[in-house]
């Protein structure tokens, strides 16, 4: 059994269900639109900002503000790609066709991740340029130091969020359970843990808190984060690796139910 056969099969699976199109387009639209809106608001607020806020004004990061919501659609995409197999019972046909479970899982992840990467990169680029257009005279340029890294990083961040969700869904199997944990975690809990002083030291090692560092060009004043932009993305990648490993081990061990 060649892995290329399985990759082709997984591509057929992913392109033949409607959820792929609507989750990914929602991620694109929400990320870009919300980024543009917040960029436009920031421009009009700039004059009334304190000096302190002006010093740490980060036009690049502001144009990615839509990702806080857009990533939720990416999570849904990642969860559904994997958990659909279980909720529909298709997993039995899939594993009977591809009994090598590692080949099955990693072909699926490869196809979904490649698609997520293309969409995320395009989204990140569009969010940046459209956001900067909204920022007017306060805008950053792609040639500025660290900006290109932040734009590429934004695409990688969204892709890793999707991949993390796939790993979690591979462990939990149920779409409802996976979404019920991931959505509130990334939308609320992680933000609270990463911003409240008491939990900040631990909270900033959470996958999204660490990973989003890569989209920052101007660090906030008094920033004492112990890792840099790539370090943060590395921490996020470790979380993703752990989720995928967990998913793989459980898939290998469990009966296909």
């Amino acid at each position: 059994m060649a892995a290329t056969q399985v990759v082709r099969s997984e591509w057929t699976k992913i392109r033949s269900v409607a959820s792929t199109v609507w989750t990914l387009s929602l991620a694109v639209v929400v990320t870009i639109a919300l980024g543009m809106l917040i960029s436009a608001l920031s421009r009009s607020e700039f004059d009334s900002m304190s000096t302190r806020d002006r010093l740490s004004f980060d036009p690049t990061f502001i144009s990615f503000a839509g990702m806080s919501l857009g990533q939720l659609a990416m999570i849904v995409f990642g969860v559904l790609v994997v958990s659909n197999e279980y909720s529909t019972g298709m997993i039995r046909a899939s594993l009977a066709a591809v009994p090598k479970r590692g080949t099955f899982l990693f072909s699926k992840l490869a196809v979904a991740t490649a698609l997520a990467l293309v969409v995320s990169m395009a989204t990140s680029l569009a969010a940046f340029f459209l956001g900067q257009a909204m920022l007017g005279e306060h805008k950053a340029s792609i040639g500025d130091e660290g900006v290109l890294r932040a734009v590429i990083g934004g695409g990688l961040y969204m892709t890793l969020i999707a991949l993390f969700s796939m790993g979690v869904a591979a462990m939990l199997r149920s779409p409802m359970l996976s979404l019920g944990i991931l959505m509130p975690f990334f939308f609320l809990i992680s933000n609270i843990l990463g911003n409240v002083d008491a939990t900040k030291k631990v909270g900033r090692f959470l996958p999204d808190q660490a990973g989003s560092k890569i989209m920052q060009v101007v660090p906030p004043l008094g920033d004492d984060t112990p890792y840099g932009p790539w370090g943060g993305l590395g921490i996020m990648a470790l979380w993703v690796a752990a989720a995928l490993l967990g998913g793989y081990v459980l898939l290998k061990r469990r009966d296909a139910q």
Binding site: Q5, T88, S94
Partner: peptide, 25 residues
């Protein structure tokens, strides 16, 4: 044939069979 409803409801019969066929060349 294990059970009737081991199929993604949003996928067409053709695509369901196609993805299984492709995985086995």
């Amino acid at each position: 044939l294990l059970e009737a409803k081991g199929v993604h409801p949003g996928r067409s019969a053709y695509n369901h069979l196609l993805c299984l066929a492709q995985s086995n060349g």
